[in-house]
């Protein structure tokens, strides 16, 4: 119990620091007044724009000290009020935009994660069974190539081959299409995220499988006359899954970062591409909301994995 309380307290402290840091950076390094008013913000001598500046300052609480604004913003954020978009005169509000876009990113990430796991388990099993042989070496080389390919480059290659040349997948995402059609439209994006992740998972699971395969109970199973594949899939996989599960969990957060670039290449209107658009438009509340949401998801996933891990393996709870 004490262990979990500590973890949760740490997570809350982290979330507060992360949000304070982001909020502070946005307000100190950036200039929210300029973002709202544009060049008018510097025009303090003109009484008309000076009045406008005062009005905006009062409306968005820009005249209050930073900690006060942070607390107020945090309260609003926690109740789902993320402010208004500057670039579209406030309609729809930021929370509306995010509500519309977040399901697409989550679908993409779940699909990518499922693909990565589905690819990596058989891949690891095959290479572990043939550790040190030629096919294993070729696979190691392949995963090296995959990991050296930046995700935007991989996205472009896949788009070129499978959308443009072979025509297997549509080029554009249409929000009005039926659900399964949209799944097909994000499939290539999911593959782009999944392939490097699968390479990471495979390397890890392969190493653990090789260790397991050297143990006595495997020899016993083989001696009973079980086939090789049965030994691997029935006996060896389960005790080798420990660090695999942890890394798959922790990596979910890492995939969010990858989705930013991939959504942009495949023109999927999710939160990642929305972050890039709002940065280019200097739309400060949208950037702030998305960065915080991503950091929140990241921290929460890490804590959940931590707790899950302590349930699977009680030794870490000490």
């Amino acid at each position: 119990m004490k262990f979990w309380m500590q973890r949760v307290a740490m997570a809350i402290l982290l979330l507060l620091s992360v949000s304070a840091l982001t909020f502070g950076a946005m307000n100190v390094l950036g200039d929210p007044l300029f973002n709202i008013l544009g060049p008018l913000a510097g025009d303090v001598n003109n009484p008309k724009s000076a009045a406008l500046i005062e009005e905006v300052k009062a409306k968005y609480d820009l005249d209050k000290p930073l900690p006060v604004r942070y607390v107020k913003w945090l309260g609003d954020f926690a109740t789902g009020d993320m402010g208004v978009q500057f670039s579209t005169d406030g309609q729809p509000p930021v929370s509306g935009l995010i509500k519309e876009r977040i399901p697409r990113t989550i679908t993409l990430l779940i699909m990518a994660q499922l693909l990565a796991v589905m690819i990596s388990i058989p891949w690891a099993a095959i290479t572990a069974a043939r550790a040190g042989k030629r096919s294993d070496k070729i696979s190691t080389m392949n995963s090296f190539f995959l990991l050296a390919m930046p995700n935007f480059a991989l996205a472009i290659l896949l788009k070129y081959i499978f959308s443009l040349k072979l025509g297997w997948f549509p080029l554009t995402y249409k929000a009005i299409d039926p659900y399964f059609e949209r799944l097909r439209q994000i499939f290539l994006a999911a593959v782009t995220i999944a392939l490097p992740a699968a390479a990471v998972y495979q390397r890890l699971l392969r190493t653990d499988l090789i260790t397991t395969l050297q143990q006595d109970f495997i020899l016993m199973a083989r001696a009973k006359g079980l086939s090789r594949s049965r030994v691997i899939f029935r006996h060896a996989i389960r005790p080798s899954m420990f660090s695999f599960i942890t890394v798959v969990g922790l990596n979910t957060g890492g995939l969010i970062g990858g989705s930013i670039v991939v959504e942009t290449v495949f023109r999927i209107p999710g939160i990642g591409s929305s972050l890039v658009e709002s940065v280019l438009r200097e739309d400060f509340p949208v950037v702030l909301a998305i960065v915080i949401l991503i950091a929140l998801a990241f921290v929460i996933i890490n804590v959940l994995v931590d707790i899950l891990y302590s349930i699977i393996d009680p030794r870490v709870r000490r």
């Binding site: 670039v261 972050l275 200097e282 950037v287 991503i294 950091a295 921290v299």
Partner: peptide
Amino acid sequence: SFTFIVLLSFPSLVLAIMLTALL
């Protein structure tokens, strides 16, 4: 150590994008 953990709480590209947006 806590500073390191805070820095690692952002996916790195997200932190980079946020800072490039401001600077």
